[in-house]
Amino acid sequence: MNNPYGYINGRVRMMRVALVDARAMDDVTNTLNYQEFLRQISETPLREDLGEATAQGAGLGQLDEALSRNYLKAISHLRSIATGQPAREIEALLLRYDLQNVKTLVRGVQTGRSADDIVAGLIPAGTLPWSALQGAAQSADVASLAQTLSVAGGKIGQILRAAVSGGANSLLDLEVALDQGYYRAVLSGVRGTNVRRYFTREIDVRNLLIARQLRGAAPNVRYFIPGGRDVSEADFLRIAGGDNSVSAPDLGAVLEAPDLGSSEAIARRLLDEASRNVAMADALGPGVALDYLRRKEQEIARMRLIGRAKFYGLSKDELQRELEGA
């Protein structure tokens, strides 16, 4: 009878109100240069965390730091307001950032990038401690990276270790193994029907993107992520073989896009829509938090993109194109 999400979602909804609204985002996008951009974001709710980013001579490094600080603060705040089962469900939602961070680490370590470069691409969210991620960025190879992350704790580190022990060595193998483990962990961690429906949609979309990526090579079912609703194993193999038909009509757009980049942009829009729907349908469940996390992530990503565009003097049209893909 007494649902703890009544209180939690009341707070999360108010946190959502504090996000940069569409009008303010347009004003920031339409600024003429970097200085005006900084002045404009100083009038948004992000101002509290801007710190040195607005100081004389400050650059993108300070801006990134400020945005990361704001992001971390928002995530920590969200984690602090839930206890018991809701806290476990929110932790399961935060695994998404662990997944993204571990993928960034794997890519960075495999391609031999410097630790600083890798750390710059990490998201200051998730359940893995920041110090553990920084330490993992210094790994010499994927095996030692997996070892470091599994010692640091967290489900994704263990999944990576299991994948490496299982013989996965190519980037695609590792990423798919991480995705499979992540969705297994999330689906076992969240109980609400609406949120589970969202994740089944996300799995379908991910399967379509992987199948597209596999076109031209021999289709292999080991890259299929179980748990989806509209894309079966047979559909996956068929799509990887070059077929564009899929049972859910709205998913067809992902396959019909001219290139993988456009497919990913369409997939992101589909998932944004799904997360908004789940936030409305799941008024007394973790759907509201899921939607908030997506919106916050997008806010920070867009601000970073706009900041870079203004700093390097990109035209309005170029920026618009970048934002559409973000």
């Binding site: 007494n2 009544g6 209180y7 939690i8 979602n9 009341g10 909804r13 108010m14 109100v17 307001i81």
Partner: peptide, 10 residues
């Protein structure tokens, strides 16, 4: 419960 959540933030 929802009102308490809202008032805690705002």
């Amino acid at each position: 419960a929802a009102a308490a959540g809202v008032v805690a933030e705002r």
